[in-house]
């Protein structure tokens, strides 16, 4: 590292410039990751957080929750077979609601289940519903002005918001948990542990069910594609930079080898530079992303935690190593004879 550090300090400008590109790329990767996770949560956190392992759908729904219709009687039978501590019916309806008889229409996703169901979410504010007319709403509904005790009119019926929960969104709308009484069909039966059904039913995991949410996989795929492209770009930018720098330093490497520097010393120096550059740039990119994230409006679907930043950071490090490989190869190929003018035949 004796040489590596001194060179970084001497040729500050060029390393700062390449560093800037790396910082921007890292920031963009973090921001898009945050957006992908935010959108994923906005679209499906209610399914991701569902207190169940498996979902039973009708076969002809082909994995799409909202296309699966199970008559209540049949659903109840399955629940009884599974044991009702480990199974609940689930009906999902995209609905409009009005608050306290105002004209404003609110988009909500209605999740109807048994009142004592395992699917009822953890309450963050208020008290659990005690009768069929009380509901639990996702906390994001507060942004539309809904408060505890407000009256929500959904379809024909009126309910009172008795509690709020958090992290329960479905198809970019807040979820309202409601008593399932009076429903004649449900979409699925949620099961903890193993599920045993036959005939016209399918058992799928929650992860599979996510793919059946409208636009979920398309949204994630397009964002993931951007992220993958950014990784590739980062690798190429680093590869080209170090390739050109190594070409430029060919003579120097020749001289150093003639003086007795072996390949492993020179490679350590180069890798040291790559690691230093990558670590500093990824850290700066992360810091910038956290700063920008704090400026985003609260209803923007942006979700980034330290743990979830770790994965892109590690991939960026790996990608930087891959980018440096070409230059490593070059360094090993340089012949010390190049230090002697006219001797390299």
């Amino acid at each position: 590292m004796f040489l590596a550090i001194r060179e970084l300090l001497f040729a500050k400008t060029r390393y700062i410039l390449i560093g800037l590109i790396m910082v921007l790329t890292a920031s963009l990767i973090f921001i898009i990751s945050g957006l992908a996770q935010g959108l994923s949560a906005d679209n499906a956190s209610s399914i991701q957080e569902l207190q169940a392992d498996l979902l039973i759908l009708t076969k002809d729904a082909e994995g799409e929750l909202t296309k699966s219709f199970i008559p209540m009687g049949e659903a109840q039978e399955i629940v009884d077979n599974q044991g009702d501590e480990h199974a609940s019916t689930l009906a999902i309806r995209m609905m409009n609601a009005t608050r306290n008889n105002s004209q404003q229409q609110l988009d909500i996703a209605m999740f109807a289940t048994e009142p004592d169901s395992m699917l009822m979410p953890k309450i963050t504010e208020g008290v659990s519903p005690t009768n069929q007319k009380q509901v639990v709403a996702d906390t994001t509904l507060k942004q539309e002005g809904v408060k505890l005790g407000d009256k929500l009119t959904i379809g024909e019926a009126s309910y009172t918001v008795s509690a709020f929960t958090s992290g329960q969104r479905y198809s970019h709308t807040p979820v309202v948990f409601i008593h399932n009484q009076g429903l004649d069909q449900v979409n699925a039966i949620a099961v903890q542990g193993d599920a045993h059904v036959e005939g016209s039913f399918d058992v799928m995991t929650k992860e599979d069910a996510l793919q059946g949410i409208p636009s979920y996989s398309q949204e994630q795929a397009s964002l993931n594609m951007m992220i993958i492209f950014l990784y590739v770009i980062a690798a190429f930018v680093l590869a080209v930079f170090f390739y050109v720098i190594t070409l430029q330093k060919r003579e120097q490497f020749g001289v150093l080898k003639a003086l007795g520097a072996n390949n492993s010393y020179l490679i350590q120096g180069l890798m040291g530079q790559v690691v230093l550059l990558a670590v500093v740039c990824i850290a700066l990119g992360a810091a910038i992303t956290v700063g920008i994230g704090a400026l985003f409006p609260s209803d923007m679907p942006f979700h980034l935690e330290l743990v979830t930043m770790l994965k892109p950071a590690i991939i960026m490090m790996i990608v930087s190593f891959i980018g440096a490989l070409l230059s490593l190869y070059q360094v090993t190929r340089i012949d010390p004879i190049e230090a002697i003018e006219g001797a390299a035949a």
């Binding site: 040489l3 300090l9 120097q252 001289v255 003086l259 007795g260 520097a261 230090a339 002697i340 003018e341």
Partner: peptide
């Protein structure tokens, strides 16, 4: 290793390391 320990070089145009 022998070059490092047993041989000293003086190159054309000095060939010092610029940084």
């Amino acid at each position: 290793k022998r070059r490092l320990e047993k041989i000293g070089f003086v190159f054309q145009a000095a060939h010092l390391v610029p940084y």
